[in-house]
Write a protein that binds this DNA or RNA. Structure first.
Lengths: 195, 195
DNA sequence: GAAGTACTATACGTAAGCGTATGGATGAGC
DNA sequence: GCTCATCCATACGCTTACGTATAGTACTTC
């Protein structure tokens, strides 16, 4: 059988597993966990599925690998995002976070977040990954609310409301007028921050 | 071919389309739009798919019929739910709504809501149904916030935050301790209602 | 230069689901 | 009592995807 080409370098070879994962994330973002199918994935990578079963035991193996990677990435990143910059106040950090989550400089990240959370509603492993990410985020954001002067319980409640709002926004039909949306976002931020 | 039985009465016959829809909703609630498949549906109804194509043109036809029905039901129901009971204040109505949405006396309704909203992220027709429901709900709930003393813009913002919170809660990993969850819910209600 | 590692193509069998005939079976209306 | 509308069973062809088997290529390491 003429396979046309083999592995060019070992460096490149090790990249292939990452390529399957990367493309898997693209399909997850585009259509949810159901949409992550091996053969369409292979077509997008311009290979056949032969190599898939070298890197992964089966489809579930890919899915759990993606989940691990997603969880680790989110947990790593939240610690960086709550770190204040030069002379940045807690309120400024929270507003920056809110903008990052809602103004969607990274629509792919939002789509992934929603896809994983929907997945978690039917799958225990996904639910555990989501729970771990939520714990990490709430633990990092609650202290920011404490820095605003709220007690620990109130800060925890506000942190939860903060994240529920962020994800809920993605489920609500968007406000049609962009200016209205911005003004409304400002009002909501004021309510969340208590000022 | 011995089909075993035919139509017993016209009354019963007209019920069949409703049965397909009803079971369709069950599968939608259980596994999202992807999970609504004709042959499993038929098995659950203990019939073959032969009759399906009598009632519906194809799978998409069933799905849009379900969507219409869902939208109409939600729009009808919100008007009833915001109507205050005997001497019920606007605040009491809002707290009652919140309890209804979050304490999940009707888990099937919540599952449907989430399934349709996830569906809406990939499907324009579903997105339009969600948008119609959101418009109706926000239009009904904002006046309750106005009755609490907020101006129109602030009331609209709070109504949006109210619903974003409700749906966002369903995406966040649940708080493990039930008492904590209740106390936190009370705090969040106080923030939403501004008191 | 031989052996191993890291892939990839190709081919196969299986399963599930879609949509399309086609031919009953039954009750309703005349 | 015949016909029509309404519904269902059965069977078929097609497509998509899964997972396995097998044989091949190319680079690496010794």
């Amino acid at each position: 059988m003429d396979c046309g080409r083999g592995v060019r370098t070992l460096r490149e070879a090790k990249t292939q597993r990452a390529a399957w994962l990367e493309t898997g994330f693209a399909m997850l973002a585009e259509g949810g966990a159901e949409n992550v199918r091996i053969e369409p994935l292979a077509r997008r990578l311009s290979v056949t599925k032969g190599g898939f079963y070298w890197h992964f035991k089966d489809r579930a193996d890919l899915l759990t690998a993606m989940l691990d990677r997603w969880r680790d990435g989110r947990v790593d990143v939240i610690a960086r995002h709550v770190a204040p910059g030069e002379g940045e106040t807690a309120e400024a950090v929270l507003r920056r976070l809110l903008a990052r989550y809602l103004e969607q400089p990274n629509p792919r990240g939002t789509a992934l977040e929603m896809a994983v959370r929907d997945w978690a509603r039917h799958d225990a492993i996904a639910a555990e990954a989501v729970a771990a990410v939520d714990r990490a985020r709430l633990a990092h954001v609650a202290p920011l609310f404490e820095a605003l002067g709220f007690g620990p319980d109130e800060a925890a409640a506000r942190a939860r409301l903060f994240y529920a709002y962020v994800f809920g926004q993605n489920l609500l039909a968007p406000t049609t007028d962009a200016d209205d949306a911005r003004r409304q976002g400002d009002r909501i931020a004021a309510i969340l921050l208590g000022r």
